[in-house]
């Protein structure tokens, strides 16, 4: 056999081998650079936060936030001041105003006196978000190709926003997932 035929046979064999792999399930089309939000695949962006328990986040109209697992029930679109104060007092973490981006703050805000006659005032100046125990959050999914946070208005997005804030306020805190967020914030440089 001539060397040209030799290499031709080798080439055919390679192609047949690839087809056998395809028949065995290997993808025949590969999309490149399709990592987090189409950005580059950066390992630090791939870390995942697993929430250790159910989490509730209370946000006021200034963007201050309280994170805990207290119970809060809305009545006629409002929370009772007593319940709000109770939640705040028992919160595991609290954030100063402007911590929660505007999309998470309550749309309209009004407070009133003892409107329902049960000896407590109530307010609509709060919004409550809930996250389930063991919920997985991949903060890198919220970093867009320009390296900016690209957050929705759901509870997981809020958690990511507050995580970044927490990393700024106190990078060594016990906030669940702090090391993941810090690694993302640090991933360049």
């Amino acid at each position: 056999m001539s060397s040209t035929e030799d290499s031709k046979t080798k080439f055919r064999d390679q192609r047949r081998q690839l087809l056998r792999l395809g028949a065995a399930g290997m993808p025949m089309v590969l999309t490149l650079g399709a990592g987090a939000s189409g950005g580059p695949l950066i390992s630090q962006l791939q870390c995942v936060i697993t929430l250790p328990g159910s989490i509730r986040i209370l946000v006021d109209d200034d963007g201050a936030a309280w994170v805990g697992n207290g119970n809060l029930k809305k009545k006629k679109g409002k929370y009772k001041s007593k319940d709000i104060n109770n939640f705040k007092d028992n919160a595991d973490f609290s954030f100063p105003s402007s911590s929660a981006p505007s999309q998470f703050r309550p749309g309209s805000c009004s407070g009133d006196g003892d409107g329902d006659g049960d000896g407590d005032s109530s307010s609509s100046c709060y919004e409550l978000y809930s996250l389930d125990a063991y919920q997985l959050i991949t903060p890198g999914d919220y970093v867009d190709v320009n390296g900016s946070w690209n957050l929705g208005s759901d509870a997981a997005s809020l958690y990511v926003a507050l995580s970044a804030r927490q990393a700024d306020l106190s990078p060594n805190s016990s906030w669940p997932g702090i090391s993941c967020i810090v690694s993302i914030l640090n991933y360049l440089g």
């Binding site: 900016s148 946070w149 990393a167 700024d168 967020i181 993302i184 914030l185 640090n186 360049l188 440089g189």
Partner: peptide, 22 residues
Amino acid sequence: KVPAVPLPKKMAPLSLEMGMNL
């Protein structure tokens, strides 16, 4: 808008390098 970790003041050079890289 980009998230950045605060560094102690004496690490300002690192902050400069990280910021320019970002």
